[in-house]
Design a protein around this nucleic acid. Structure first.
Lengths: 119, 119, 119, 119
DNA sequence: GTGGTCTAGACCACC
DNA sequence: GTGGTCTAGACCACG
């Protein structure tokens, strides 16, 4: 959890779970950590996890069995390709705009991306 | 104004003005639109514009002359170089991570940035 | 609010709003009651209303402008056509099954749907 | 068992048994499946079946003979007509509302119900 | 004054 | 022990 990013905790949780599903770390049918255990792990309030799980359920990404847990839903992200492209487009677009706002043109931006080293 | 992006209006205003200065559309000494006229233009609350102008003034990018308006200041918006670098680093880092999360490696990411076309 | 029905308050709120949109009492662009005013009206906790509004937003039925209110969204269910069809199929399927479980065959079911009068 | 409907399993079991009695599939004096066999059949926890049978007994719909099984009692399940109508009304109402929320008017809804084919 | 986020805690239904 | 519902209250960002 990154409390300084301004991104709400529950949204960070959602992203991480979507991430895990995308990368195959979580597969359809897999059980998510219980609300309480994850809350303890992340050191945040259980209700915050519950809110994240709830949104994932409304969006059809997971399903909930009261009394037994929360599971990755079978429905695959079939919206898939088009949705994925849309999201990539959006990601790149926002990045280019932010870099431009910092005074970096496309060439300079490319240079920075190329040379970026992960910690 | 993009009300669906989650970026606060006042921050969008700030970015657009910085952008305009960077591109030369606004030059040192130029007068910015009045708070009220801009508010009407953008169809948002005048307080929101005021907040943006205020933050721009704090950062030394514009100066306010009570009674006559708000002007682009002479000082270039060079918020200390180190700070700037830090922010760029952060921007690029987050972007690279998000793209990786979508399954794009550095090469694919560069390709997308290179080919991105603004609307 | 019917506290004896077993249906959670927030779900009752959702249904009533969907209902109001259905009947045209609420139209795209209309502003919903504020969370707090509705909470007072219905004599329940504001957070409960917020939960209902939140779910409506996730489902794309309303949109929220922090600071100014919650509005009936104009976007129609743009969720990709295939996704939409799937959901409709699911909705109808479950309904037909439930009616069958109550001993109603297709003909009787159609009759009931045809004659249903909104409150 | 429909785990996505939100209706508790034990209540679904109750409904199905009431249903079976209503339609004559089960008659007074008939023996219900044992708790364990039904649990295996439906792939749910035996406690859940037990809870359903228990509630049916409280309501006088079945009687239990320890050591020999659970039997349909003589009293007919006539909580009957008014309750039944209320439930049907509710079922249809919610369905119509959900379809409306998906942008389907009454006519389109009827069409979908008419043409729905079970798997 | 608008909604958003987070915490905390109580009580319930289900397995 | 699982998640669900509801209340309460604090603090924040936005208009």
């Amino acid at each position: 959890m990154d409390s300084s990013s301004g991104v709400p905790f529950y949204r960070q949780v959602i992203q991480q779970i979507e991430q895990a599903i995308l990368t195959g770390m979580l597969e359809p049918g897999d059980r998510l950590p219980t609300i309480r255990s994850l809350a303890i792990d992340l050191k945040i309030n259980p209700n915050t996890i519950a809110k994240a799980y709830n949104e994932l359920e409304i969006r059809g990404i997971v399903t909930t069995q009261v009394g037994s847990g929360t599971f990755v839903s079978d429905r695959r992200p079939d919206s898939a390709e088009s949705e994925r492209k849309k999201r990539l487009e959006e990601l790149v677009g926002r990045f280019v705009a932010e870099m431009a706002a910092m005074g970096m043109d496309r060439k300079a931006t490319l240079e920075l991306v190329r040379e970026f080293k992960e910690d």
